[in-house]
Amino acid sequence: MTLPYAIMIFITLQRISELFIARSNTKALMARGAVEYGRSHYPVMVLMHGSWLAVLWGTVGGRPVNLALLAVFAVLQAMRVWVLATLGRRWTTRIIVPHNEPPITGGPFRIMRHPNYFVVICEIAVVPMIFGLVWVAVLYSVLNAAMLWVRIRAENAAYCDVAA
């Protein structure tokens, strides 16, 4: 197995495990009376992230690995773990707003409003660049920016709706 494919296996298994965690957390939150917002854009987001992975799988073979950018990716993974640990059972891939619970303000949320989105923005650009795939980094960064424009507006509106 080559290093590019080992990296892709790691990322793919990570994303799959996160989907299971997100599904479990979503069910628990909904059972406690939480409300989902932004449901209509969710399939588009899943398609975008899935196609990003598919394009990477189809293009990384035999490419050199930039070890400095791989180190940046490792730092991003530590940040991802920090975000998920801070959110705990409230972390999902959907916009789920718990009833009578304020937004999380500890951990990385003390530093920035949407730390998970920061990590995702960086990953979508950095991972392709690890393999020298500039076009993938640019294309999916633009697509992700459009997705986050919709998603962050929906998320902010959801918390304003709950606060009202």
Rank of each mutant, 00 (worst) to 15 (best):
A125N: 08
L69E: 12
I104K: 06
V81W: 14
I96K: 00
V60S: 00
E123Y: 07
G58Y: 07
A68D: 09
P64A: 08
F118Q: 10
V83L: 04
L70W: 10
G58C: 10
R113L: 03
I96L: 02
T92Q: 03
G106L: 06
P103N: 00
R89L: 11
I121W: 14
F118Y: 10
Q77I: 14
W91V: 09
F73W: 15
A125R: 11
L87C: 06
A78R: 14
P64N: 02
A125Y: 14
N66D: 11
A125C: 13
V75H: 11
R89M: 12
I121E: 14
R94W: 06
V120G: 03
I111P: 03
I124E: 08
R90S: 10
R94Q: 07
R94E: 06
Q77D: 13
R110L: 04
T92M: 07
Y117T: 04
Y117S: 07
P98K: 01
R80I: 10
N116F: 03
W91E: 01
V119H: 09
R80S: 08
W82P: 10
V119E: 09
N100C: 01
A78D: 12
Y117P: 05
W82D: 12
W57N: 01
A85M: 14
I111D: 03
L70V: 06
L84S: 06
P103E: 03
E101W: 11
V72K: 06
N100V: 00
I121V: 15
V81R: 14
R90V: 02
I111K: 06
